[in-house]
Design a protein around this nucleic acid. Structure first.
Lengths: 123, 123
DNA sequence: GCCGTAGTTCGTAAACTATGAACTATTGAA
DNA sequence: TTCAATAGTTCATAGTTTACGAACTACGGC
């Protein structure tokens, strides 16, 4: 198993961050990680946003987040502990992460509202 | 030629915006459009960020920006006038665009600085 | 009508993504 | 120690997306 790659903060790019967070599963994962103080394992996300993700796919998503510089992953025994690198990114790109997570919240709230209005059409 | 698609603001998604702006050519185009008060034609961008873009590719990039809801394009005679939809997006996702454009500026400034430090290694 | 300019669409090769199957690493028994 | 269980990773491959040249369409003069 090859060692995990964590770009140093100066190699983190806006394009990389935006691309990583342009996937619904990945923003959902990242939002949860960023909102939680303590580290979280990958398998915590086998179920997310009402759908289940195969673990190979999940592993790729974590790799994408890691290599974009958004999270840090550390092996702890048999599992992997993931934490967001918010603070570092905030320093390099002030306000970026907050704005994205906020927009994500706005959108989720909007969806929840419209789902409530017409609950018959499940999607 | 099929009509241009402009999603209504409530159909604009964060994922869509992030994906559209996760491409270096597209952010560059968008940054310029957003920074300018007046509408701009596509062919203005055949040269951007020191590289030339084939026009079919450029057309796809504009399509991507348009369908993500980031710009509005209108035919004016033989050419296409493009304007950014900043105001609408700002209303739906407050602070998002500003933060992204700002991060983009920070990164560009960083690159310019390091290029100046070692001007021999042209990339 | 025909020509030139500005963009779009099509076809296809290359790059990227999702996922099942097979694998690796670590821990905790037996 | 060996074995099994658990948590992730890697590989192969099918499917999707992207880039770009060639061919096309739309509009405005002449």
């Amino acid at each position: 198993m090859r060692p995990l790659i964590h770009p140093s903060i100066e190699h983190v790019t806006v394009e990389g961050i935006l691309h990583a967070l342009s996937d619904p599963v990945r923003v959902a994962i990242y939002a949860q990680l960023a909102g939680s103080a303590c580290a979280t394992t990958c398998s915590n996300f086998l179920q997310i946003s009402d759908r289940s993700i195969p673990k190979s796919t999940l592993s790729q998503h974590f790799k994408a987040l890691r290599e974009a510089g958004l999270i840090r992953s550390e092996r702890q025994g048999v599992e992997m502990l993931n934490t967001s690198r918010c603070a570092e990114i905030e320093q390099r790109f002030p306000g970026l992460i907050v704005a994205i997570l906020n927009a994500h919240r706005v959108q989720a709230a909007g969806k929840a509202r419209s789902a409530k209005r017409k609950p018959a059409i499940a999607r």
